[in-house]
């Protein structure tokens, strides 16, 4: 085939293209992911005891707010890196910032509590359930978001995959916060932060295979 023939074919009857489609569909995928994870948590795991009392919804809300601090910048970066060359306008340092902030808070809160309380703060009953549930639930938003990003054209697949994993991990954490009763800062930092990091790592490894175009 001659290149001129190809060009002739490609440029016959070109349809107008909506460039805002990409942002909208990633947003929609994240929203679908949130709805799905909240649904799973409510109907499969069940909400935490007394969710509607202040002592329960307030810490749940704080955990969700802290997760949003990571979710919002990482979804902006996800949209950028889904475009060819867009990975150059994403910064790893900025993504690490909320993680660092939570670590600082953890160290502070441990410093100001007696060391006999440390074990209880970190290894409260739910840690194992948390470590298993968040990555497991994250599979749902991960699949939805991966499917959408495959329609785009990322040129750094590992990095884009990492953002998909990061966003999916955050989405899953938001849902899981309605179930989880581990409310201390160290618990959140270690088990939420840790599992979100695991999701990010998984995305980084899977990206080159799943997102290739």
């Amino acid at each position: 085939m001659k290149t001129d023939e190809l060009i002739e074919m490609l440029s016959t009857n070109v349809e107008p293209v909506d460039h805002r489609h990409i942002v909208r569909s990633i947003r929609l995928a994240i929203a679908v992911g949130v709805a799905a994870t909240v649904g799973i948590v409510f109907f499969v795991l069940g909400p935490r005891a007394g969710l509607y009392s202040e002592s329960a919804w307030l810490p749940a809300l704080l955990k969700i707010a802290a997760t949003l601090l990571i979710l919002v910048p990482s979804s902006i970066y996800l949209v950028r890196s889904a475009r060819p060359g867009g990975e150059h306008s994403t910064s790893t340092a900025l993504i690490a910032l909320p993680f660092a902030a939570i670590m600082v808070l953890t160290v502070l809160s441990l410093t100001f509590s007696p060391s006999s309380h440390w074990k209880g703060a970190i290894l409260s009953d739910e840690w194992l359930e948390c470590v298993i549930s968040i990555p497991l639930i994250a599979i749902v938003p991960f699949v939805v978001i991966t499917w959408v990003v495959r329609q785009m054209a990322p040129t750094d697949l590992a990095r884009t995959g990492a953002f998909v994993g990061l966003v999916a991990g955050c989405v899953s954490s938001i849902g899981y916060a309605f179930h989880c009763a581990g409310d201390t800062v160290p618990f959140f930092a270690l088990w939420y932060g840790g599992t979100i990091a695991v999701c990010t790592f998984a995305g980084w490894r899977l990206g080159p295979t799943l997102l290739r175009w």
Binding site: T3, L6, I7, L10, V17, D18, H19, H21, I22, A82, R83, P84, G85, G86, M152, A153, T155, W213
Partner: peptide, 24 residues
């Protein structure tokens, strides 16, 4: 050329074109 055509919806018209083409 086929990739540019099939993925042209990923070009953001407010950004320069050539870095996008170059990346593809």
């Amino acid at each position: 050329l086929m990739a540019i055509h099939a993925r042209r919806h990923t070009y953001d018209p407010s950004a320069p074109l050539m870095p996008w083409v170059q990346a593809i």
